[in-house]
């Protein structure tokens, strides 16, 4: 069932593929992307670090969009699930956003996914602790 919703997203123009992870970055399911699971996990962890920065704020991050010349990445967080979508370019963005929202709302209702995501719930700030970051990143965080 989860694959069906990821396929819905992947079927849109310019979408390369999509995947979902827990809040620790563990990949639960992916569709369409021809990269290693480890690469997906690395992408997720970096998105989750950005989320962790805002975690203690009044309004934590729920959505991030990243624009490159020939690349567009959307990360959406809902109920302890991160959905990442990778596109060649930001085409039909309105439709993409709707499809992501609808798909994610169905995905979080999947029992198997829900259970796994719940078991991985953690303090987001652990992704910003020493040992998780390289020297440059640690230095940048120390300036906060």
């Amino acid at each position: 069932m989860v694959e069906r919703w990821l396929r819905e997203i992947q079927n849109l123009p310019s979408v390369k593929g999509t995947f979902i992870t827990t809040m620790r970055g563990a990949v639960l399911e992916s569709y369409g992307l021809e990269i290693e699971e480890q690469d997906m996990q690395n992408m997720a962890i970096r998105l989750l670090r950005i989320h962790a920065l805002t975690w203690e704020a009044e309004n934590p991050l729920t959505e991030i969009e990243l624009y490159w010349k020939n690349l567009f990445i959307v990360g959406k967080i809902s109920q302890n699930i991160l959905l990442v979508t990778v596109c060649d370019s930001p085409q039909v963005v309105a439709l993409l956003r709707i499809t992501i929202n609808v798909s994610l709302s169905h995905i979080v209702q999947e029992k198997k996914i829900y259970k796994k995501a719940k078991s991985h719930v953690t303090d987001p700030s652990h992704l910003l602790r020493k040992g998780q970051l390289d020297e440059n990143e640690t230095k940048l965080l120390a300036k906060r």
């Binding site: 009044e58 729920t62 624009y67």
Partner: peptide, 9 residues
């Protein structure tokens, strides 16, 4: 990266 868009509440 050219632009980063964050939705915070």
């Amino acid at each position: 990266v050219r632009f980063i868009s964050l939705l915070l509440g």
